[in-house]
Nucleic acid binder design. Structure first.
Lengths: 327, 327
DNA sequence: CATCCATGTGTAACCGATTACACACGGAAG
DNA sequence: CTTCCGTGTGTAATCGGTTACACATGGATG
C-alpha cells in the first residue's frame, strides 16, 4: 500500500506538502494541489490512520459504553450512533459494561490506550471525578446526568406523565406503575412523571420497583396483580418491563387491553412485535443517538462549550395494549 | 504517561531489552526482568497500542460485521464474541452492514486501514475473491460457508429436522414451513431439514419464504393461514419469523398452541419473553460466537490451519408454543 | 587451544504520518 | 531602496514502539 512518501515522490513534492494538502493546513499552491491529487488517485493512496494517530494522539474512533446489550434499547441506540458516526468518518467501538464498574473502567482504559477521540457513556455509575479526570471528550447518554458533563437525555418526567395521562384517559380506575430501579436516573424521573399525573386524582395507585429485566418485571407484575385484582391499568418504566407485565397478565388468565391496559416506555421495535402490540412513550431513540454523536464531535472539534445539555421530547405511540374510551 | 524509554532508563537497560521482555521474545536475564518489572509498576507504564501497531502492522482489535443489528440474534452473538475477545485482550468493533455490499466493503477497508487483526463476518454476500484477496485472517460465522475459508456454523439441517420432528410428535396434521430467504445459506439448509423430516409422510405440507423480519413473516403467515385453515403446525426459519407467525395467528383469532403449534429457530432470549413463550431450536448462540473468536485468534497467531470448519449442534428447547401429545 | 553456540544486551533504523523551523520569493509599505 | 509580510516549500525531528544486527561473555566440543 502506498505511503505518503510514495505520493510525494510521484508528485515531485515533499511529504510536508502532501501532508498539508491532506489536512488542509498551511499553504499549498494550486499547482502542487493538482499534482498531488493526480498522484493520490494513481497510487490509490489512503493515509494510514495508525501512523497519523501516533502523531496526533487521537483516533477517528469513538467508544460507546452501554450497560446491557441484551436490553434491546441499547442495540437500537447503538445503531443510530454508529450510523451517524460513520457519516462523519468515525468508527464506533461498542462496549458492554454489564453494569459492572470494573468492566467499564477496563474498557475506558483500553480505549484510551488506543487514543479514542471520545466516549459516549450510557451507564449508571456516575463517578464525576473519574470521568472529568479522564481528560477525553465525552457525553453522557440517557442514563446519567450531571451538570458538569455534557449530556443528552429524554424528558422522562414529561414522557411518563404523558403516558400515564393517556392511560387515565382510557378509563383506567386503579393504576399501577412498575418502575425501573430508582437509582437509575431516568427510571426515577419516570416515576416522578407518573406521580405528577395521578396527583390529586381520586384513584387508587400503586408503585412497584423492578429491574429493567423481563423476568423480574413479570414476577413483580404477577405478585402485584394477584394482590390487587382491582388494577386495570399499568404504566411500565420501560418497554421490556411492559412486556413482562403482559406476560404476567396472560398467566393470570386476563386479557390486554380488555382487563388490563398497559403503556410502556422507550419505543423499541420489539413493542410492535409482541401481541398485543404495545402502546408506549417513544423516546425517539434514533434522535437521541444522533444528537449524542453530533455533540461529541462538536466537543472533539472544539466547537462546543463543555457543558451543554440536550433534552429530547418523547411522544406517545398508541397501539393495541390500550383501548380508547370512545370505543 | 510513561513510555518504554522511561522504563528503560529507570530500569537501567535499553529499550530493546524492555521490548523483548514485554513481548516475551528473545533472551532477557532474570536480573533485567526483575528490574523492568519494578520499573513498570512504579511508573505505571502501559505499552502504547498505536505505536506498537505502527511497527507490527496489527492491532489487538477484531472487526465483526453483521447484516442487521436490529435482528436480536446478532446482538446476542456479538455479546458472546465481545466477551470472549476481551478475555484475550482484544477489542471488537461491531459493524452493521445493513445487508449492503458497499457498506460492508467500506467497513472492511476502514478497519484494514486501522490494522485490525482479523474479521468475523456474518453477512451474506460471499465474494470469495474479495475476501481471500484481503490478506487478513477471517472466519465466516453462521451465514455463509465456503470450503476455502474457515467458518463456524450451526448444523442447520439437523436442527430443522429436530424441530420439525418435534412438531410432528405433538400431533400436527398439516404443517407449514415459513422459511427465511433461500439465498441465505442457513435458511436454505433449514428448509432442507424440514423437508427431510416430512419426507415420505402422509401429511399435507406447505413452504413459504419470508425475509428474517417480523412484519413480513406476519404477513406471510397471515396469508398462508387464511388460504389453508387446516394448518395446525408451523416450523419457522427463525425465532423472529416465529414471533411474526404468533401474531398472525392471534390476529386470526386463533390460539397458540391450541389451534396452531409453532417451533422457532435460533434460541434468542426474546423467545422467552413472548406470550406464549416459544418452543425453538437453540443454535447455541454463545458457543457459536465463542468458537468463532477462538478460531480467529488461532489463525491470527498462526496456530491453526487455514480452512477449518466447525459445526455446532443445535438442541431443542420446549416451551409453550407447542403442546406434547400426552397432555 | 581454537571453534562454536547459547545467552544476553545495546544501537540505530524503521513503521507512516505530523509539524516546527528555516528559507525563498515577490509585492507592498515606508 | 530597504524592510516586512504573505505565500509556498523542504528538511528533519518526533510520536512510541519493534527488531535486525553487531557484539560480548562463557562453557562445551573437537
Amino acid at each position: 500500500m502506498a505511503t505518503i512518501k510514495d505520493v510525494a515522490k510521484h508528485a515531485g513534492v515533499s511529504v510536508a506538502t502532501v501532508s498539508r494538502y491532506l489536512n488542509k493546513k498551511g499553504y499549498v499552491s494550486e499547482e502542487a494541489k493538482n499534482k498531488i491529487e493526480v498522484s493520490i488517485k494513481q497510487l490509490d493512496y489512503r493515509p494510514n490512520d495508525i501512523a497519523r494517530s501516533l502523531s496526533t494522539k487521537r483516533m477517528q474512533t469513538i467508544g460507546l459504553i452501554v450497560p446491557d446489550i441484551t436490553n434491546p434499547f441499547f442495540p437500537e441506540i447503538a445503531r443510530a450512533i454508529e450510523d451517524t458516526a460513520l457519516l462523519e468518518g468515525y468508527t464506533v467501538v461498542l462496549c458492554n459494561s454489564d453494569e459492572q464498574v470494573h468492566k467499564e473502567r477496563h474498557y475506558i482504559e483500553t480505549l484510551k490506550q488506543k487514543y479514542v477521540a471520545g466516549f459516549i457513556i450510557a451507564t449508571n455509575q456516575l463517578e464525576r471525578e473519574y470521568y472529568t479526570g479522564l481528560n477525553v471528550p465525552l457525553v453522557l447518554l440517557d442514563r446519567i446526568t450531571d451538570s458538569q458533563i455534557p449530556s443528552v437525555s429524554s424528558r422522562n418526567k414529561n414522557g411518563a406523565a404523558l403516558g400515564t395521562e393517556y392511560l387515565l384517559s382510557c378509563g383506567v380506575k386503579e393504576i399501577a406503575c412498575i418502575s425501573g430501579p430508582q437509582d437509575v436516573v431516568p427510571a426515577f424521573e419516570r416515576t416522578q412523571g407518573f406521580l405528577k399525573a395521578v396527583e390529586g386524582l381520586d384513584i387508587k395507585t400503586h408503585i412497584v420497583e423492578s429491574q429493567f429485566h423481563f423476568k423480574e418485571a413479570e414476577k413483580a407484575a404477577f405478585e402485584l396483580l394477584s394482590a390487587h385484582p382491582g388494577i386495570d391499568g399499568i404504566f411500565a418504566g420501560s418497554d421490556i418491563i411492559a412486556i413482562g407485565v403482559q406476560r404476567a397478565v396472560h398467566r393470570l388468565g386476563l386479557s390486554v387491553p380488555n382487563d388490563i391496559q398497559i403503556v410502556g416506555y422507550d419505543g423499541i421495535s420489539l413493542g410492535e412485535m409482541v401481541t398485543p402490540s404495545l402502546t408506549t412513550v417513544d423516546q425517539n431513540i434514533y434522535q437521541l443517538g444522533e444528537t449524542a454523536v453530533k455533540m461529541l464531535l462538536n466537543i472533539i472539534k472544539g466547537k462546543s462549550v463543555d457543558n451543554e445539555h440536550v433534552i429530547i421530547d418523547p411522544s406517545l405511540i398508541v397501539r393495541d395494549s390500550t383501548k380508547e374510551k370512545s370505543k
